[in-house]
Amino acid sequence: MKKYLRLYAYFLRFSFSKSMEFRFDFFFRILMDFAWYGTQIAFFSILYKHTNLLGGWNFDQVLIFMGSIFVVDAVNMTVFSNNFWWLPTYVNRGELDYYLMRPVSSLFFLSLRDFAANSFMNLFFAIGFLVWTILRYPESFSIDKIMLFIFLLICGILLFAMMGMIFIIPVFWLHSQKGLKDIFSSFQRFGNQPHRIYSGWIKHVLTSILPFAFVASYPVSILFENSPLKAVMHSFILVISLFLFMRYFWKKGLRAYSSASS
């Protein structure tokens, strides 16, 4: 564990010095994320001009939901997205050898090596926005609920990242440009809306096989519910199951990999 933490500290140091090379990109990344936050807030603001509730939530509650989505996205953009972007290229060019030879987990190395320091600033904004939406909410929340919310949101971040990876791993067989990343992006839209608007089999899919409902919507809902333990257990089991599946799938993928130099 100590070895992995030390290694991650090196990743961070390298990423920060690299990001300073591209100062314009640093600025434009902030601009891009602010545009995304702005369009999402505008989208829900316009919807709420026509309705008072959406999936049982009022606008104040949806603002907390949006803050949570922004935090999940900011962590993903900062910690994982660069790594997921480059993985298909390494696989298709047969350039994974360098990472497979290291005396550390290849999954760890390839998922976390490239920390996007240029997205780091947005993480502060996203967290700030989430805290602001919670503080401006007309009722106050107990410390227990806030702690549970933070725990579920961390689970949501992990679920989101693992689903992202699971959709990229098929590149070992498909050799396409991005794996199935585009499909993942389409499904992602389900997670950007309150889970109570879904019904029927899609609701079951979003809470089990593709648990987008547990990324931000369920974590936010426990702030307004009285019996949150079921959701906490459900989320925890999902994180463990998805992690085991991702590791199994990764190993299967590596077996299908053919190096450019062998």
Binding site: Q177, R189, N192, I197
Partner: peptide, 28 residues
């Protein structure tokens, strides 16, 4: 990759807005 992404992407994207507007019309 192209056709799978196109078909599933189309269905997923439309599915998300279908549920959204269904809820908006119902609750308003």
């Amino acid at each position: 990759d192209f056709w799978i992404s196109a078909v599933i992407g189309f269905i997923a994207e439309f599915g998300a807005v279908w549920f959204l507007w269904n809820a908006v019309f119902k609750e308003s």
